[in-house]
Design a protein around this nucleic acid. Structure first.
Lengths: 205, 205
DNA sequence: AAAGAGTTTGACCAAATGGTCAGGAACACG
DNA sequence: CGTGTTCCTGACCATTTGGTCAAACTCTTT
């Protein structure tokens, strides 16, 4: 039987272990750079056993990406039309930064995929993601029209938020390399920087 | 003979073709995702012939990375202590954005490398790059002390500039996917956004 | 035009890799 | 406790891939 959808106790345990291991490996080496053996090792299974649960390496990768997309979009979903505009945006920035800190592997998994042209998730990007972004851009545009937010292009504002927050996960090696041997707690510095930065850029005066 | 340093007419032509082809392939598929055959094809050479000029696949990759590092740092080098602080930073932002537009392959080459932990360029990051960044951070800190620039962490300011500009090359697939079917000239929108954004965030009032 | 250096190639190799399969071991359940 | 299902494994396979090599070809130089 191939491509089992988790039912039994053992199936649940093992599919969970495989996805966890795959996240670890794929996020570190990219799709092509990861081997089924590596994933099987990390999951504590033999290769044939792993392939008993997922038919192919690609199936694991797809399941991972699909399963994480929701988590990934959650912070943007929370953006509240009725809140204070600047605070709402700052809140979004800080939520995204927290995600970069707490889920760096997920961030890198997406980064790896997108840098290489997003071949496997272009549909989700042009679907759910685009819809959500456009919806929230309308909200932001509304705030701007009400004079509650500086006049900036909403799409590029969102892009900038993704870039400035996710870099702390995706380009961690670079940032650590440059900051070394300075403090290791650069996330709180980043939070301070981003908050004052976005507040000062977005506040209407 | 292995690892020829270009001397003859043919050597110059072929090493150039190989590096150009390698940039194309590596930036698209990453190191592990690229094959020597692909590069040889793109360069119009046979595999053994390619390996006559470079001893290994890794040697090509290293040569590329090392050769491009200078180009990559040039915009930051131009940051002028004696210029107007805000204009200098804006100028840097726009130069980096132009590079993302004109040299997206180079940007993605680095992005691929850094996302995966920068195993092959960590030395350069912790060497030349770090030194240059620290030097320029001192300049920025000086401007801040003189009250000519808003008080922000210089390191994180630079990180944010890298992130907001390079994303237009590195995450091109995502940005196009979201903006589609809108205009294709999003670089000028990005330039407008970034200029007003950084100006408004950095100007002292 | 011959010699020697530089260049190119087909054939080949070893290792790595994704995936298969027949059968055995462990488990659930009546 | 027996039986059918689920789970697991060693052995195996085809393909891909990085790299080698001897031989052949071509270019330059005298």
């Amino acid at each position: 039987m191939t491509g089992v959808s988790p039912k039994t106790r053992i199936q649940k345990k093992n599919t969970r272990a495989i996805l966890e291991a795959a996240l670890e490996i794929f996020s570190k080496h990219g799709f092509r750079g990861s081997t089924v053996d590596q994933i099987a090792d990390a999951a504590g299974l033999s290769k044939p056993n792993l392939l008993y649960y997922f038919p192919t390496k690609e199936a694991i990768h797809l399941e991972l990406l699909a399963g994480l997309m929701d988590t990934w979009l959650a912070p943007l979903r929370q953006l509240d039309t009725d809140g204070d505009p600047v605070d709402e945006i700052i809140g979004y920035v800080l939520r995204k930064l927290t995600m970069a800190q707490e889920l760096p592997r997920e961030s890198r998994l997406f980064a790896n995929e997108i840098v290489q042209g997003a071949p496997r998730i272009i549909d989700q990007i042009e679907g759910d993601l685009r819809d959500l972004v456009n919806e929230k851009c309308d909200v932001i545009q509304g705030w701007i029209k009400q004079g509650k937010l500086a006049d900036v292009d909403p799409h590029h504002l969102i892009f900038s938020i993704w870039a400035t927050t996710q870099q702390y996960a995706d380009f961690d090696a670079q940032i650590r390399g440059i900051l070394r041997p300075r403090n290791d707690a650069h996330f709180s510095d980043a939070a301070r920087f981003l908050e004052t930065f976005y507040r000062s850029a977005l506040t209407v005066r």
